[in-house]
């Protein structure tokens, strides 16, 4: 059923992405592709992977933005991983004409049933975040599953039961947990760092949060330290004598 759950989930699983420490290495995107191309949404088809215009399905895309404050003369360059936010009021779910798109009552994860999707693409039009991509080969839509086949997998050691993007991040910029629980590590992180939702004005009530870059430590001088010629008579007698000869 493509209506949203009538009993909203008490658990809201999601990601917290720290823009302060993301280095834009794309490891999350690559490991996501690696896990999910044989996971629930498999395959993540690539068209002409070695051709002139390679194109394919990815659940993670890492952008790089620059925020420029002209007046202050400052700017921040920020690496920005973009993936499904598993919205509470997910418009991609309600527009689905077949019921293929749904939000799980138990943990809030938004999924697609590939067996009933007709590939009308309307869900991708309804999503503000570009979280849904069309698989041209299979004729159905694909999206992030929050690694549902990994996070509940009892065959994996406990520490591995997190989404592939989280377990692979070399800087620890991604955290996974229950954002409905105020006492969870992710909720505490969001509270401590002023985590925010993307495009709240779109009314989708995203679950995922982004942590802003920390304020810059500017020090005393804005300009980098430069070497200067010493001409202040602080040099010793011998040095001044050599200088005198050379300057002659």
């Amino acid at each position: 059923m493509t209506s949203l759950p009538t009993n909203p989930s008490k658990v809201k699983l999601g990601l917290v992405i720290d823009l302060d420490i993301c280095v834009g290495c794309h490891a999350c995107a690559v490991n996501c592709k690696e896990w999910n191309t044989s996971g629930k949404m498999a395959p993540l088809t690539d068209m002409q992977p070695y051709g002139a215009k390679p194109d394919g399905v990815w659940f993670n895309r890492v952008h790089t933005f620059e925020a420029v404050d002209e007046q202050a003369g400052t700017s921040r360059t920020v690496h920005f991983p973009r993936s499904c936010l598993h919205c509470d009021d997910a418009p991609c779910v309600t527009v689905c004409p077949t019921g293929a798109s749904y939000k799980r009552e138990e943990d809030g994860i938004v999924l697609i049933n590939s067996d009933t999707c007709i590939g009308c693409k309307l869900c991708s039009w309804a999503c503000p975040y570009g979280a849904r991509e069309y698989d041209e080969d299979e004729g159905v839509m694909k999206k992030c599953t929050l690694c549902i086949d990994k996070i509940y997998n009892e065959n994996l050691p406990l520490e591995s039961r997190v989404p592939a993007c989280v377990s692979t991040c070399p800087t620890g910029a991604r955290s996974f947990g229950d954002l409905a629980d105020q006492n969870s590590d992710v909720s505490k992180l969001v509270a401590a760092r002023g985590g925010y939702a993307l495009m709240p004005e779109q009314g989708t009530a995203p679950v995922n949060r982004y942590l802003p870059p920390r304020p810059k430590k500017l020090g005393n001088s804005l300009a980098p330290r430069m070497l200067e010629y010493s001409d202040d008579n602080s040099a010793g007698v011998l040095a001044r004598w050599v200088d005198k000869i050379l300057s002659a």
Partner: peptide, 21 residues
Amino acid sequence: TGLGQFGKVHMVESPHSEDNY
């Protein structure tokens, strides 16, 4: 992007070189 507090935002690098879906 939620980066408005740092100034006007523009893209520096796209995640991919070719057009995606």
